[in-house]
């Protein structure tokens, strides 16, 4: 589904991604872990199409197409979804109105008819239950004055509505209590299917108790320095990142 090859990206003069290689197949869940400042959010943003970053090398293939060549909205229409680490407040635009616009734009891109009001509401009701989110929240301006947990849940709600092929969750778990975490995990697991894939950027192993990954990668200083099965996450939880950092230094990178 997704093949990232030697991806390099700068912000200004500063190189942040220094050659990322990662292959994600349909049906898989990949966890990306790593110390703060490693470039996890940068990778997520570059995949979603944020233009603040200059891609200086490498390529990203998404279902046979050149992802880096697409505008952010086209990527969304092609099936990429990024749950933001810091969801943005959109003053004056309700979640409902926002999502209706987004869904219908995506449908237009795919040559499908727009959803009418009834179809849209029915879908919303169904997904609201899934992430246990309240109607009143969805009528308010998107993310404006939402608590941290509400913002994260709203991200998952949007994901559930848009049903992406590839969901990228950037630290959706941080700052959540255990109940909220469980809800987020349920939302993600509900979307798990042989046609879809998920990249989970996380700091903590605890999310992985609920969403069991197929692979765990460690991103450090702009590179994936270690990959392994889900057990790698336990090891990281236990031993921290120092041993990995040491390994990297030893290798003399």
């Amino acid at each position: 589904m997704l093949t990232i090859s030697d991806l390099q990206a700068n912000i200004g003069e500063k190189q942040i991604l220094k050659g990322i290689n990662l292959t994600v197949k349909a049906g898989e869940v990949h966890a990306i872990m790593g110390p703060n400042g490693s470039g996890k959010s940068t990778l997520a943003s570059v995949l979603a199409g944020r233009e603040d970053y200059d891609v200086t090398g490498g390529s990203v293939d998404f279902e046979g197409k050149d992802l880096l060549d697409m505008a952010a909205e086209v990527r969304a229409a092609e099936g990429i979804f990024l749950a933001f680490q810091y969801p943005v407040e959109i003053p004056g635009v309700s979640t409902t109105n926002f999502l209706k616009t987004a869904m219908n734009e995506i449908r237009k891109y795919r040559g499908q008819d727009s959803l009418d009001a009834v179809q849209f509401l029915r879908l919303m009701k169904e997904k609201m239950k899934l992430v246990n989110i309240d109607q009143s929240l969805l009528s308010r301006a998107l993310n404006e004055g939402f608590s941290g947990g509400e913002k994260k849940r709203n991200e998952i709600f949007q994901m559930a509505m848009l049903e992406p092929k590839l969901a990228i969750l950037d630290e959706t778990d941080s700052g959540l209590d255990i109940d909220a975490l469980r809800i987020v995990a349920e939302g993600v697991n509900a979307l798990r299917s042989p046609e879809r894939a998920t990249i989970l950027v996380t700091h903590y192993q605890r999310l992985l108790d609920y969403i069991v990954p197929d692979y765990v990668h460690v991103l450090y200083k702009g590179r994936i320095v270690k990959s392994g099965p889900k057990e790698l996450a336990f090891e990281l939880e236990e031993k921290g990142y120092d041993w990995i950092k040491a390994e990297v230094e030893e290798a003399g990178v």
């Binding site: 199409g49 909205e73 969304a76 933001f84 969801p87 959109i90 869904m103 848009l162």
Partner: peptide, 10 residues
């Protein structure tokens, strides 16, 4: 960017 990342054209 947030809006575009959800599929709404610029």
């Amino acid at each position: 960017f947030y809006m575009r990342s959800r599929g709404i054209p610029q």
